[in-house]
Structure formats: structure tokens, C-alpha cells
């Protein structure tokens, strides 16, 4: 364990950089939002959500067993449940249980 003041300093650095990233766009565009940014603001959410899904699944190994099967099946369960009932909670619960079943029991 490192000493307390050093730990506090590291936490302060993590906090400062995180907040810099969160506040920067708002500071830069505080007066008015330039047109390209308006356009990005409109279309980015769709791209980002796809990027986040990939980010969550980034460590899935397709080449080694089980070849990403738990992830693929569970994502499919989420999509199908959602298409069927449109209940966010049900879709998330169903998909997560399916995934846990896979990694704890089946494999």
C-alpha cells in the first residue's frame, strides 16, 4: 500500500482528468454551438451507443472456446425480448440471467 497523501494525489489526478474531459465541450461551446457540432450532437448518440456495445464486449474471444457464444446468445435474447415486450427491465434481466447461466452453469 502506498502512503495516504500519495493515494490522495493519484485520486485527485484521476478526478481532474475525468472532469476536464466532461467539462471541456461545454466550456468550448458555452456561447453558441457551431454548426458541425450541432450536426454531431444530433447523429453521435446513435454511433456512440453502438461503440459502447462493442466496448462492453471488447474482451470476447471469438477464436477460443466458447467462441463468443454466451455473448452472442445473450445479446440476441436482449434484442428479441425487447422487440417482443418493449420492457427495458425485462430485456436486461432476461439477457443477464441468460449470460450468467451460460458462464456459471453451462460452460
Amino acid at each position: 500500500m502506498i502512503d495516504t497523501s500519495r493515494a490522495l494525489l493519484l485520486i485527485a489526478v484521476m478526478s481532474a482528468v475525468t472532469m476536464l474531459l466532461r467539462f471541456l465541450p461545454f466550456v468550448l461551446f458555452s456561447k453558441s454551438t457551431p454548426k458541425p457540432i450541432l450536426y454531431l450532437g444530433e447523429v453521435l448518440p446513435y454511433s456512440i451507443m453502438a461503440m459502447l456495445v462493442v466496448y462492453c464486449l471488447r474482451n470476447t474471444s471469438v477464436l477460443e472456446t466458447p467462441h463468443g457464444l454466451p455473448e452472442a446468445v445473450s445479446v440476441a435474447v436482449v434484442i428479441l425480448l425487447h422487440k417482443w415486450k418493449h420492457s427495458t427491465l425485462l430485456s436486461i434481466l432476461g439477457g443477464t440471467l441468460c449470460y450468467m447461466l451460460f458462464v456459471q452453469v453451462i460452460l
Binding site: Y46, S74, H82
Partner: peptide, 27 residues
């Protein structure tokens, strides 16, 4: 495996956005 809940949340939002969006190219 419970951390899959976050992945599932993002998948759900992706599906919802897909259904509402008038353009699918960004996704």
C-alpha cells in the same frame, strides 16, 4: 457474469434508438 447488465442496457438503448431513428447510417 452479472456485469452483462450494462451491456444489455446499451443493447436495449441501441434497439430503441434504431426503432425511432429516421436514419440508420450513424448506428
Amino acid at each position: 457474469g452479472i456485469d452483462f447488465a450494462m451491456t444489455a442496457l446499451f443493447v436495449v438503448i441501441f434497439v430503441e434508438q434504431w426503432e425511432k431513428a429516421s436514419h440508420h447510417i450513424p448506428a
